[in-house]
Design a protein around this nucleic acid. Structure first.
Length: 803
RNA sequence: GCCGGGAUGGCGGAACGGCAGACGCAGCGGUCUUAAAAACCGCGGCUCGCAAGAGCGUGCGGGUUCGAGCCCCGCUCCCGGCACCA
C-alpha cells in the first residue's frame, strides 16, 4: 500500500527529479571550489552489486555529500573496471563472450548504483573496456616506453597453470597459489613487457611520509617496497671473479665463516669443484623443482650442498667454504651471502647442521654456539674494529675500509620488482606494439590508436604462452609502422592494473576524445582530495597509481607527483563472522533489503553498524532500527508547528549539529547517526508541538546519510530548492552550556553521592558542598580528607586512604 | 616468525584519564486494538537486598595514578598483512 511516507514512493521520485535537474553534474571547467571525491571503481561482476560495494560507496558518498554541503563543488565520478581475468574466467565458465557479458553486467550495475542514491556524475562515467578509454591506456604505455620506463625482457615469471597466464608477483599468495583460482603457481621463461617501477622505489617510499593516508596502508607499501640499507662485498676466489654478496650487517664481516649461493645462482654449478659438480647439479635440480612448486626446505636445515671450493675473506684472508642452499634466494640481493652463524639464525641453523665454525663478533650475553645473537653490542674478534659499537658505528667504519680498498661499497636494496604487465589472455587492451623482423619492436603511432581488441569467438587461453589473439591472422598480420614491411602485432594484452592505474586522471576528461586528460581540467581537479577504498589494494593499485603519476609528472604531463592527497581504507563487511562467499552461502543480496526497507534505511544501517574503517557483521534484523528512525521523523511532521523553540530543545539541536558536523568529516558515521537519533528522540519526547526548525535541521544533517528522506522532509516542511544545496547548519557554542551539571562525589575513588549544581563553580566551592553532604559527612566521620581532587563540573574525589 | 588492528551486556557498538554500557537490535512487562501488526510507556551487566543501598564487573596477570576500558610492563586468543629479503 503505497503512501507518501513510503520510501518506495518518494525515493524513486527524488532520484528522477535530481537526474532531471542535473543536481549531481557540475561544471568542471568553471567550478570555483573543486573537491575531488574518489572511490574505487567496481569490477562489474555477474553477481551484481555486492553489499561490500554498497558499504564502500555509501561511506564515500556520505563524505562527498558532506563536502558539498560545506560549499565545495564536489566531483564524484564512478566507472567500471571491466577488463581482466575475473570477467574472462566467468565468460569461459558460462560459455558466453566477455564483450556480451560485460555489457550486460555494466547495465545491471548501473541500475543498482543509481538506486544507491549517490551523487555520481554519470556524465563522466568510464568503462575501461571501451576503446575510447583503452585507447589512452595504450597511449600511456607508449609514453612510458618513450621515456624508457617500459622494456621487454625474458624473465622467469609466475605462471598459473589453470588460468594459463602470467601473474604479477602481487597476484601470487604467500603459499605459492594463484590469488584468482588457488592453483599452485609455476614458473616459465617468457618475453614480457615490464614497467620500471623500481626506478621510483626511493620516491615511492619517501613520498609516503607526507601523505594523509591510513597508517596501515602506508606501512603495507613500505614493507612491499622493502628498502634495506647495507653494502655489497666482494670475496675473492682463486682463479675466478670474486663472489659478490649483499649484507645489511657489514659490521659482522669478521664473523663470516662460510658463504652460501642460491641454488639457481648463475655461478653455483660453475663454481663447484669438478669432483662435486654432479652432486651439486643434482641438488640444484631438486631445489629447482621444489622452488617452482612453491615449497621450500626448512630454513638453514641440512638442505644444501658444499661446492668443494673456498673464497677468501676480504680482510682476514681466511678460507671460507662455499655452499649452495635453498634458504638463499636468487631474487634478492646478489643471490649469494656471507654467512655469519653467530649473528643470524638461518646461518646458525645451517652451520650447526653442517658442523661449520661459529665465531662471535658482537659480544652476546648467551652462548652463540647454541643460538644466534641478532641484536647489537660491542665488536669482538674483529681486528682493527674490535671495541666499536655494532651495528653502528661499526657498519660505517667497515664499509669505509672496504670502499678504500675497492672490496665493497655501500648499497641500498629494495624488495620491489619491476611490474610485468604482459598477459597472454584475450580480455584486456592489446599492447600497442608491432614486431618487425627488420626494425624490432616498434610502437604503434599514437594517431593509429586504439589498437582495437577484435571480437574473437575463440577467446579461451591457448596455454602456449601466447594470447588467443596470436591465432587471429587478421589481427596479427600488419605492416611495420616504420619501414612498411610485413610485421606481426604484439598479441599480449596488458594487466588490468594498468587500466586502473590512471582512471582517476580520465574521469574529468571522460567525454574528450582528443586527449587522455585535459591539462586545464587536470590542474583544477587533481590530485584527488579524498580517496576511499579497500585496503586489499594497499600495495597493488595504490602503488601502481602513484608510480604512474610520478612517471607522468616527470614527463611533464602532471604538475603533481602524488595522485591521492588523502586515502582512507574502509572496513570489510562480513556475514556470520566470515567473509561473504557463495561457497559459504552467507552472501547478502542488497536488493532484497532495499526493496523491503528502502535505500536510505539500508544506507543508514550499513553506516550505523560500526566504525566505517572497521567494517562489521551484517545482521539483517538490526536494519529495523534505522527504518524505525526514519519513520519516526515522518511522524514528527504531524506535530510540527512554527513555534518558538524551547531552550532545552534548542540546546539538544545545537548539540546534534555539533556532533554530526564533527563526526562526519572524520568518517565516524556510526556516532553521527546515533546523535541524529538522540535528537530525534528528544523531539519525539517533547510534549507539545515540535518546532519546525528542529525537523528542518534534522533534514539537513541527515542529507548526506539518507539523501531521499532528507529531501522529502525538507519539502514537506515547505523548503525550496534542494536540501542538498542548503548551507550546512552551524551550532552556537553558547547554547551548549548546561544549566545544571551533575558532579560526582567520590571517597577514595568510589562514587558515594552526587551534587546537582550550576556549571562553573570554583573548586573550593565544590569541595565545600561535597563535604556538607550528609552521606559524605557520615563516611568521613569527622576526619578531614588527606587530599581533595576536584575536576570542575565533573567530580570531587575525597582521599582518605594513605597512599 | 615479523608488522598492524582488536577483545566492553544476549547482539552491533559508545565512552577529552573523571557516573562504563550512549545509540540501536533482540527480549520481557504494559497501553491501544475484537485480534494482530504498527505506535506509545516501562524494565533490563552480575550478586545480595522488600527497599535504601552494598559488593563485583571492559580477555588474563602485574604496575603507574586521588582516579584506568583508556597509560606502562608481561601474557592469551581473534582478525588482517608480510614472510628464508641476508
Amino acid at each position: 500500500m503505497a503512501h507518501d511516507d513510503d520510501p518506495a514512493v518518494y525515493e524513486a521520485r527524488w532520484r528522477a527529479r535530481w537526474a532531471r535537474d542535473g543536481l549531481d553534474r557540475i561544471d568542471l571547467a568553471h567550478a570555483r571550489d573543486p573537491y575531488y571525491n574518489l572511490m574505487m571503481f567496481p569490477y562489474p561482476s555477474a553477481e551484481g552489486l555486492h553489499v561490500g560495494n554498497m558499504y564502500a560507496f555509501t561511506g564515500a558518498d556520505i563524505h562527498g555529500r558532506f563536502q558539498r554541503c560545506q560549499g565545495h563543488d564536489v566531483f564524484e565520478p564512478i566507472g567500471f573496471d571491466a577488463f581482466g581475468i575475473h570477467s574472462e574466467n566467468h565468460a569461459i565458465l558460462v560459455g558466453r563472450h566477455p564483450m556480451e557479458l560485460v555489457r550486460r553486467n555494466v547495465t545491471r550495475f548501473r541500475t543498482q548504483l543509481e538506486r544507491l542514491g549517490a551523487q555520481f556524475d554519470w556524465s563522466k562515467a568510464v568503462d575501461t573496456t571501451d576503446p575510447r578509454y583503452y585507447r589512452w591506456t595504450q597511449w600511456l604505455f607508449l609514453q612510458l616506453w618513450k621515456a624508457d620506463l617500459a622494456y621487454r625482457a625474458t624473465r622467469r615469471v609466475k605462471w598459473c597453470p589453470n588460468d594459463l597466464t602470467v601473474l604479477a608477483d602481487e597476484q601470487v599468495l604467500g603459499d605459492g597459489t594463484c590469488e584468482r583460482c588457488g592453483a599452485t603457481v609455476l614458473e616459465r621463461e617468457l618475453e614480457q613487457w615490464f614497467l620500471r617501477i623500481t626506478r621510483f622505489a626511493e620516491r615511492l617510499l619517501a613520498g609516503l611520509d607526507a601523505l594523509d593516508w591510513s597508517e596501515s596502508t602506508k606501512l603495507a607499501q613500505r614493507n612491499w617496497i622493502g628498502r634495506s640499507e647495507g653494502a655489497h662485498i666482494d670475496f675473492p676466489i682463486a682463479g675466478e671473479e670474486p663472489l659478490r654478496v649483499f649484507t645489511t650487517r657489514p659490521d659482522t664481516l669478521f664473523g663470516a665463516t662460510f658463504m652460501v649461493l642460491a641454488p639457481d645462482h648463475p655461478r653455483t654449478v660453475r663454481l663447484a669443484d669438478p669432483a662435486q659438480r654432479e652432486t651439486v647439479a643434482a641438488y640444484v635440480a631438486r631445489a629447482e623443482r621444489r622452488r617452482v612448486a612453491g615449497q621450500h626446505a626448512e630454513s638453514g636445515g641440512p638442505a644444501g650442498v658444499a661446492l668443494g671450493r673456498t673464497a677468501r675473506h676480504p680482510l682476514t684472508g681466511a678460507e671460507l667454504p662455499l655452499f649452495a642452499a635453498e634458504y638463499v634466494l636468487s631474487g634478492y640481493g646478489t643471490g649469494a651471502i656471507m654467512a655469519v652463524p653467530a649473528h643470524d639464525p638461518r646461518d646458525h641453523a645451517f652451520a650447526t647442521a653442517h658442523g661449520l665454525a661459529i665465531v662471535e663478533v658482537v659480544r652476546a650475553d648467551q652462548d652463540v654456539a647454541l643460538a644466534a645473537h641478532v641484536g647489537g653490542g660491542v665488536l669482538v674478534n674483529s681486528g682493527e674494529f674490535t671495541g666499536l659499537g655494532a651495528p653502528d658505528p661499526a657498519r660505517e667504519r667497515v664499509v669505509a675500509t672496504l670502499e678504500a680498498r675497492g672490496l665493497g661499497s655501500r648499497e641500498v636494496r629494495y624488495k620491489l620488482r619491476d611490474w610485468g604487465i604482459s598477459r597472454q589472455r584475450y580480455w584486456g587492451p592489446p599492447i600497442p606494439v608491432v614486431h618487425c623482423p627488420r626494425c624490432g619492436a616498434v610502437p604503434v603511432p599514437e594517431t593509429e590508436l586504439p589498437v582495437v581488441l577484435p571480437y574473437v569467438e575463440a577467446f579461451r587461453p591457448l596455454g602456449t604462452g601466447s594470447s588467443p589473439l596470436a591465432a587471429v591472422p587478421e589481427f596479427v598480420n600488419t605492416r611495420c609502422p616504420q619501414c612498411g614491411e610485413p610485421a606481426r602485432r604484439e598479441t599480449d594484452v596488458s594487466d588490468t592494473f594498468l587500466d586502473s592505474s590512471w582512471y582517476f586522471l580520465r574521469y574529468p576528461s571522460a567525454d574528450r576524445d582528443d586527449v587522455a586528460f585535459d591539462p586545464q581540467l587536470t590542474r583544477r581537479w587533481l590530485p584527488v582530495d579524498t580517496y576511499i577504498g579497500g585496503n586489499e589494494h594497499a600495495v597493488l593499485h595504490l602503488l601502481y597509481s602513484r608510480f604512474i603519476a610520478m612517471a607522468l609528472h616527470d614527463l611533464g604531463w602532471l604538475d603533481f607527483e602524488e595522485p591521492f592527497t588523502r586515502f582512507r581504507a574502509h572496513g570489510m563487511i562480513v556475514s556470520q563472522g566470515a567473509k561473504m562467499s557463495k561457497s559459504r552461502g552467507n552472501v547478502v543480496n542488497p536488493d532484497e533489503y532495499m526493496d523491503r526497507y528502502g535505500t536510505d534505511s539500508f544506507r543508514l544501517y550499513l553506516m550505523f553498524m560500526g566504525p566505517f574503517d572497521e567494517g562489521g557483521d551484517f545482521r539483517d534484523r538490526s536494519i529495523n532500527g534505522p527504518a524505525r528512525f526514519l519513520a519516526q521523523l515522518f511522524r514528527l511532521l504531524a506535530r510540527v508547528e512554527d513555534t518558538e523553540e524551547p531552550a532545552a530543545l534548542a540546546r539538544a539541536r545545537h548539540l546534534c549539529v555539533q556532533k554530526v558536523s564533527a563526526d562526519t568529516p572524520q568518517l565516524k558515521y556510526n556516532t553521527a547517526i546515533a546523535a541524529l537519533m538522540t535528537y530525534a528522540n528528544s523531539l519525539r519526547d517533547h510534549p507539545g508541538p515540535v518546532p519546525a526548525q528542529g525537523v528542518r535541521t534534522l533534514a539537513q544533517l541527515l542529507a548526506p546519510y539518507a539523501p531521499h528522506a532528507a529531501e522529502e522532509l525538507w519539502h514537506r516542511l515547505g523548503g525550496t530548492g534542494s536540501v542538498h544545496r542548503q548551507p550546512w547548519p552551524r551550532h552556537d557554542p553558547s547554547l551548549l552550556v548546561e544549566e545544571v551539571v551533575t558532579v560526582i562525589v567520590a571517597v577514595d575513588g568510589r562514587r558515594r553521592d552526587q551534587l546537582r549544581v550550576a556549571p562553573g563553580l570554583p573548586a573550593d566551592e565544590l569541595e565545600r558542598l561535597a563535604l556538607s553532604l550528609p552521606r559524605i559527612a557520615a563516611l568521613l566521620d569527622g576526619h578531614p580528607p588527606r587530599r581533595v581532587v576536584v575536576v570542575p563540573d565533573r567530580q570531587v574525589n575525597l582521599v582518605l586512604a594513605v597512599a
